[in-house]
């Protein structure tokens, strides 16, 4: 290859890598273009303390509930022993998978489609041998369910909310009495965001001050 061409490739490539490191280090412009995904090395993004799984359920017009994901023909296990749907952190693509299942199966008309997340404390992932070495109490995980998305049978979004863990974090932040008082005094507002994709659901949700009055995370005994 011509020397000038090689040198150009080297400069461009090393420059792109350096730009990625700089943007990542300064936490800026990392989401400007899909190409940035190839130059930002944020492999350790932090892992939540709760394990999460997604359930995708269809409610037929007869009131019967159906499993939409995993589909009846089986699901892919991309990185381990669990299905692809569980790697969807936001849960939004589960809706698309649900409609794909509906397209390729025989079923009654659907009234609603739900994306429900299931969470549990990761300490219950420990095998029994380790559990009983370090814990005196019974291994009895509490499962926290949360309806994240509700969609009409024709695909119209009805309800969307942040994830369960995000809500718990908001509750903890709002448990401050001064913040609660401010919330009571402030007018509630609706976030209206311009969607470039009409089929996408809003990711921001209205934080109901009444919800803040409920017992906050960690006091559920």
């Amino acid at each position: 290859m011509k020397r000038w061409l090689v040198n150009t490739i080297l400069v461009v490539y090393i420059g792109a890598f350096s730009w990625g490191i700089l943007c990542h280090g300064m936490s800026t412009l990392t989401g400007t273009h899909p190409a940035m995904y190839f130059f930002v090395w944020d492999m350790f993004c932090g892992w939540a303390n709760y394990e999460k799984r997604n359930f995708v359920i269809g409610e037929g017009v007869s009131g019967t509930f159906y499993e939409l994901d995993p589909p009846p023909w089986g699901e892919m296990h991309p990185f381990g022993r669990i299905g692809r749907r569980h790697y969807d952190v936001s849960g939004i693509t589960c809706v698309k998978s649900a409609f794909n299942t509906l397209r390729h199966t025989d079923h009654e008309p659907m009234a609603r489609i739900y994306v429900i997340e299931q969470n549990w404390s990761k300490k219950y992932n420990l095998p029994d041998s380790l559990w009983y070495m370090y814990f005196s109490d019974r291994k009895d995980p509490t499962l926290y369910y949360h309806v994240q998305y509700v969609v009409n049978g024709d695909g119209t979004p009805i309800e969307a909310s942040p994830g369960w863990l995000q809500i718990q974090q908001q509750l903890v932040q709002a448990s401050n009495p001064r913040v609660q008082a401010e919330l009571q005094r402030s007018m509630p507002f609706m976030m209206i965001e311009k969607q470039s994709n009409p089929s996408a659901m809003p990711s921001n949700a209205f934080l109901n001050p009444a919800l803040v009055q409920q017992p906050s995370a960690g006091t559920g005994n």
Binding site: T64, F65, T101, H104, G220
Partner: peptide
């Protein structure tokens, strides 16, 4: 074609219920 697998309505009802506050044992 495949048909959809029905789900236990009691299990679905449990999932639809509002989640309880986080238990202390989980904190």
């Amino acid at each position: 074609r495949h048909t959809l697998k029905e789900m236990d309505p009691e299990f679905v009802a449990e999932m639809m219920r509002p989640a309880p506050p986080i238990k202390d044992k989980d904190v």
